[in-house]
């Protein structure tokens, strides 16, 4: 009996490994090995030309003792991450639920919301620079309500909010994922709730959100990941300024590695970032496990 069980277990394990084997190969060669290499590099001086030279904890010492700009960049990144991710997911969820309730024209709306995701990044960013310009469309709109709009991208206080507002435009991707998830929710559950006299807001929070919570979790986690690596916007639109207010960690790492040829130090920075981000992910997963009925 026991042997039989063990055999069954073994078979089950083998089946699992077989299914994920392509990924194990991928992970090992294209991710784990490079990550280990980068961990090694973080203890070296590596100028991207000569072989890396071991310097112990020197890069980390410099980061903590001599480089205040890293902490500033980290603060900027966290600000952007939390600002953009939760607003994005919430707005996307609202729009997805509205779309899910629309009988006619759903396809058209969905395509329109997805447009900014499809368009090449550079033209879209160029457009945003125009919209954010002091007499651009956004400030003209605010002026209708008597609000004197800020300088947005050239203001130290408003540059990050401007980038967050811009990121909201890219929610098309999340809407699509959420919609695909929402369509899995059986209509009967909604009908039952309506019969019980629940109003729309209650249905939204008590039924819709928990039913698609694995998808929301996915959106939040991948959102946090991509926001933690926010790069192109700052690189192209602000160059990290004004006064380093949009210098995010990834921009800093990129400049260090590719513009200054200091890959060792860049790797150390990436590793510290990684070590700070992992507990955050675990926390997000924990919160969801408590909340979601499925995961």
């Amino acid at each position: 009996m026991k042997g039989h069980q063990r055999k069954k277990l073994l078979k089950q394990n083998m089946k699992g490994y077989l299914f994920v084997s392509p990924w194990i190969l991928n992970l090992a060669f294209f991710t784990i090995i490079p990550i280990i290499v980068s961990a090694f590099l973080s203890f070296t001086k590596y100028d991207m030309v000569n072989p890396p030279r071991w310097i112990g904890f020197m890069n980390y010492y410099i980061m903590f003792k001599l480089d205040p700009s890293f902490w500033k960049a980290l603060g900027n990144t966290l600000y952007y991450m939390f600002g953009s991710v939760f607003m994005k997911v919430f707005l996307a969820l609202v729009l997805a639920v509205l779309l899910n309730n629309v009988a006619k024209g759903m396809g058209m709306y969905r395509t329109i919301f997805f447009l900014p995701v499809v368009l090449p990044a550079v033209p879209v960013m160029f457009l945003w620079m125009m919209l954010f310009s002091p007499n651009g469309l956004i400030n003209r709109f605010l002026a209708l309500f008597g609000i004197n709009g800020p300088l947005w991208l050239s203001s130290v206080t408003w540059s990050k909010p401007a980038l967050i507002i811009m990121s909201l435009w890219g929610i098309g991707g999340i809407i699509v994922i959420l919609l695909a998830g929402l369509q899995d929710v059986p209509k009967s559950i909604y009908e039952a709730a309506q019969l019980d006299g629940a109003n729309s807001v209650q249905i939204f929070w008590r039924i819709t959100v928990p039913m698609v919570s694995p998808i929301i979790l996915f959106c939040i986690v991948t959102g946090l990941i991509s926001a933690s690596q926010v790069f192109t916007e700052a690189y192209i639109m602000t160059g990290g300024g004004p006064l380093e207010s949009t210098t995010f960690v990834s921009l800093k790492i990129y400049l260090l590695a590719f513009k200054q040829g200091n890959m060792g130090y860049a790797s150390a920075m990436a590793w510290l970032m990684f070590l700070l981000m992992v507990p955050l992910t675990i926390l997000v997963f924990r919160i969801f496990r408590r909340w979601s009925p499925i995961d």
Binding site: F126, M129, M130, F132, S133, P134, N135, L151, W152, L153, S154, M237
Partner: peptide, 15 residues
């Protein structure tokens, strides 16, 4: 300075 910034941002990228 504010007016200059405003001018610069208006004629920034592409303009």
């Amino acid at each position: 300075i504010k007016e200059l910034e405003q001018f610069n941002a208006t004629y920034g990228w592409g303009a």
